[in-house]
Simulated scan of single mutants.
Amino acid sequence: MRDFDHHDINLRIVLLVVLIPCVLICMILSLKYLAPLSILANVFILVVVLSCVSFGIKNRIEYPDTETKPIKSFGGVMKFIGVCIFSMEGVGVTLPIENSMARPTLMPRVIIIGMTIVCSLVILSGFFGYWGFGENPAEPITNAFPKNWYTIALKIAMILMIWITFALNFWVPFNLVWVYLKKRHTKRLALWERIYRAIFIIVITSIAIAFPSVTALMGVIGAVCLSNMGFIYPAFIELMLDWETPGLGYLKWRLWKFAAISLFGLFIMFLSAYFNGRDLIRVAISK
């Protein structure tokens, strides 16, 4: 990792430094106080995506011979799918948000509108980022932008966005675990909750320091964990609910659908985990 003066910065040291602000923001116990910060993070995301489109077009015009390929190797496709599946982890925030809504019946409409916007932003940044900057752009994509005060502000906005979304994504799984942890304590629950929050964040940061390759780590988590949660488990639950009523259907098509989805999930899980895990280990050893 390099700063603007081209001095080498150890990524593991940076990760250790950001531990403190991550602990502080995760001390916010209520989701309603994180919601306004989420709106701010969404504004930052929109600005970064639009800037990616703009700089991508400008770079392509300036360097029309930038190398791009219609499809990469099979391993590259598997790594890409693992990272895409990782993006499904936001599904875990859906139910807590629905439970906090004044009108929960509007949640399906919210999901449709929200996912349309999210997919559009991802497609825009992915297409113009690759088309504009080529086969091996800097990571993250903001490092490929021209170096000026505007792009420095973009990086700061991106840092704040990741910082806020980390707290949002941490809130849901921790509260699921806290339901069982708080049974061990009868007094000073607020203090113990903050202690456990700090311990969890330290563990998460330790994993990030051990495996600093974010892309490969996202791919492994997406392949091993979220391929089950996103494909196999929902298909199995649906099959069990439909087993007697309305039944398996003509030629047991619901059973065949479950088998197809499960095989696809297993296929993604093993192959994507293999290719991303190989990169993860290589980067962890080399850095």
Rank of each mutant, 00 (worst) to 15 (best):
residue 73 S to G: 12
residue 74 F to N: 05
residue 96 P to N: 00
residue 119 C to H: 10
residue 102 A to R: 14
residue 107 M to V: 04
residue 120 S to V: 09
residue 64 P to A: 10
residue 126 G to R: 12
residue 65 D to K: 12
residue 121 L to A: 12
residue 111 I to W: 04
residue 90 G to L: 01
residue 102 A to Y: 05
residue 94 T to L: 15
residue 97 I to T: 09
residue 108 P to I: 09
residue 78 M to I: 01
residue 72 K to W: 01
residue 92 G to N: 03
residue 89 E to D: 01
residue 133 F to N: 06
residue 110 V to R: 06
residue 106 L to T: 11
residue 130 Y to I: 06
residue 107 M to K: 03
residue 63 Y to K: 13
residue 113 I to S: 11
residue 80 F to R: 05
residue 95 L to C: 01
residue 111 I to N: 05
residue 97 I to R: 00
residue 80 F to W: 09
residue 133 F to A: 08
residue 73 S to F: 01
residue 89 E to A: 08
residue 117 I to E: 11
residue 81 I to Q: 05
residue 94 T to M: 11
residue 106 L to F: 02
residue 104 P to L: 12
residue 103 R to I: 12
residue 127 F to T: 12
residue 75 G to Y: 01
residue 108 P to G: 08
residue 123 I to D: 09
residue 128 F to T: 12
residue 74 F to Y: 07
residue 87 S to H: 08
residue 82 G to N: 12
residue 84 C to R: 00
residue 116 T to V: 10
residue 123 I to N: 08
residue 89 E to F: 07
residue 77 V to R: 00
residue 125 S to M: 14
residue 71 I to G: 00
residue 84 C to L: 13
residue 66 T to L: 07
residue 113 I to W: 13
residue 77 V to F: 15
residue 125 S to Q: 15
residue 78 M to F: 09
residue 96 P to G: 02
residue 124 L to Q: 13
residue 106 L to P: 00
residue 76 G to D: 12
residue 119 C to M: 14
residue 70 P to L: 04
residue 112 I to T: 13
residue 92 G to M: 09
residue 66 T to K: 05
residue 108 P to K: 10
residue 134 G to V: 08
residue 100 S to M: 04
residue 111 I to H: 07
residue 134 G to Y: 07
residue 120 S to C: 15
residue 111 I to G: 04
residue 128 F to Y: 15
residue 79 K to D: 07
residue 64 P to H: 08
residue 117 I to R: 02
residue 120 S to W: 10
residue 81 I to D: 05
residue 120 S to F: 15
residue 71 I to Y: 08
residue 93 V to M: 09
residue 123 I to M: 14
residue 122 V to M: 10
residue 76 G to R: 08
residue 63 Y to G: 02
residue 96 P to R: 01
residue 71 I to K: 06
residue 74 F to A: 13
residue 115 M to F: 11
residue 114 G to N: 01
residue 120 S to G: 15
residue 110 V to P: 00
residue 92 G to I: 09
residue 113 I to Y: 14
residue 72 K to I: 07
residue 129 G to Y: 08
residue 132 G to D: 06
residue 83 V to T: 14
residue 102 A to E: 14
residue 70 P to Q: 02
residue 95 L to E: 11
residue 91 V to S: 09
residue 75 G to V: 09
residue 90 G to V: 05
residue 78 M to L: 11
residue 92 G to D: 00
residue 108 P to W: 11
residue 116 T to F: 15
residue 118 V to S: 15
residue 101 M to C: 07
